[in-house]
Design a binder for these strands. Structure first.
Lengths: 200, 200
DNA sequence: TTAATTTTCGACTTAATATTCGAAACATAA
DNA sequence: TTATGTTTCGAATATTAAGTCGAAAATTAA
C-alpha cells in the first residue's frame, strides 16, 4: 500500500536528514551533532528522525556508506590500467583529491569521524568498511607493482601506504586554514614526495 | 603543617593516577577512559581522584603538559645548530621518533587525544600548547632555512609542514599493527621523503 | 591517649543526550 | 465520508558519566 511516490518521498526525507546532519557537523563539530540539533536543522521533530533512522549511529553509518561508495566508484574506472602503476596511483589520488576539494566537510566526516568514534561505527561488517578495504587493497597493489618496476622507492608497501596516507591526510585536514588545496599544489606534492623515482 | 614526605607522597599518588589514566586509555580507548575506570585501575575510590585533581580534564591536561615539556626538552638541545638545517631537522624528527618508540601509548595520547576532544583541552593558555607552538616554530624555521639552502623542495613551508606532520603521524599511528617502527626504518623514510634534495 | 589534620570512599546528585511513547495530524482509498 | 494506514511531534524515560557530599578511616602531633 506504499505508492512509488511515497517511497520516493521517504528517500527524499532521509536525504534531508542526512544533509542536516552533515551541516550540523560542519558548523558545530561532531560533539555538537546531537539529535536535537540535527532535528532543528532538518526542521523535523526529533522523534521523526527515529521514524526514518533507528538510531543516530545509523545516520552516521549511512553517511559513511554513501560516501565510501562514491569514493570507490570514482576511482574504480581508472585502477584497471596496470601497466603504469605510478601514473595510476597518482591519478587515483588526484581523483580523491578532487572529491575532497569539492566537498570538504563530507570528507572530513568520512576520514576523521570514525577515528573519533570508537564505537560500533568501525565494525568490519559495515559496507563502507568494505569499500575502504578494497580501496586500500588497490593502492597497496599499485605500490607493489610500482616498486617491482622501480617507480617507487623500495620499501615495505604497508609502511609506505601508511606514510602516503598520513601525508594525504596532513595536506587536506591538518592545520588551521580550511581553504581547500588546489589541484596544482596537490599534484606538486604527490610528485615531489612519491613521484620522483625511476621513470615513466 | 604538611611535611616534605607528605608532599612527596601526594606527588606520587598523582603520578599513580596519571599512569592509571594512560593505562586505561591504552587498553580501552579514550571513550572508555572514564573516571570510574581510572579509579578502578588506580585502585582508589572515584572521589579520591577528585581530591588530587579538580576534574577529569585536569588529569588530561597534566598528561599533555608533562608530555610536551618532555618533547620540547628533548629536542631543544639539538635545534640551535643552524648551519645544516636539513640535518638538524632530521635529527629532531629522529629524537621524537625515539621517544614515540619508547612510549607509544603516551604519544598516541599526546598526538591524538586533543583532536578527539574539542573542549577546553585545546585552549591556547595551557602550557603544552606553548611547547607545541615553540616546536612547530622551530621546525618551520628549519624548513625555511633549508629551502633557502636548497636542501628541501621549494614549497610553501606551512604546507610542507603539514605534509611532513601527516607523514610522521601516518608512520607511527596509522594502520593496525602497533609494533613500534624501528629507528632504521624511520630514518630510511625520512631521508627518502624529505632528505634526497640538494646536498649536505 | 586524644585532638586535629589529612586522606579515602560509596552513595547521591546533576547534566547531557539518546531513545521511546502515545496521541494527534495528515493522506489515501473504498 | 469514513476507516485505515502513514507521518509527525512534544513530553516522558533511560542511560551514562562527571562531579559532590558527608562521614569514616588513617595519620600525625601534642
Amino acid at each position: 500500500m506504499i505508492s512509488d511516490r511515497q517511497t520516493k518521498e521517504r528517500e527524499f526525507r532521509k536525504e534531508q536528514i542526512i544533509k542536516a546532519a552533515l551541516s550540523v557537523f560542519k558548523n558545530n563539530g561532531i560533539e555538537k551533532a546531537t539529535m536535537d540539533e540535527i532535528a532543528k536543522e532538518a526542521d523535523f521533530g526529533k522523534a521523526t528522525l527515529y521514524y526514518y533512522f533507528s538510531s543516530k549511529e545509523e545516520i552516521f553509518i549511512e553517511i559513511l556508506n554513501r560516501g565510501w561508495k562514491m569514493i570507490w566508484e570514482s576511482i574504480e574506472p581508472v585502477i584497471h590500467d596496470r601497466d603504469k602503476p605510478k601514473d595510476t596511483f597518482i591519478d587515483a589520488l588526484n581523483i580523491i583529491g578532487s572529491l575532497v576539494r569539492n566537498n570538504q566537510s563530507l570528507f572530513e566526516f568520512l576520514f576523521t569521524v570514525p577515528q573519533k568514534m570508537p564505537n560500533s561505527l568501525n565494525e568490519d561488517a559495515h559496507d563502507w568498511k568494505g569499500f575502504q578495504r578494497k580501496m586500500y587493497g588497490v593502492f597497496q597493489g599499485l605500490l607493489e607493482d610500482g616498486m617491482a618496476k622501480n617507480q617507487f622507492p623500495q620499501m615495505r608497501s604497508d609502511i609506505l601506504m601508511r606514510a602516503i596516507g598520513g601525508l594525504f591526510h596532513g595536506l587536506f585536514f591538518l592545520g588551521n586554514e580550511k581553504k581547500p588545496m588546489s589541484r596544482q599544489t596537490m599534484e606538486e606534492f604527490i610528485t615531489t614526495f612519491i613521484g620522483n623515482y625511476g621513470t615513466t
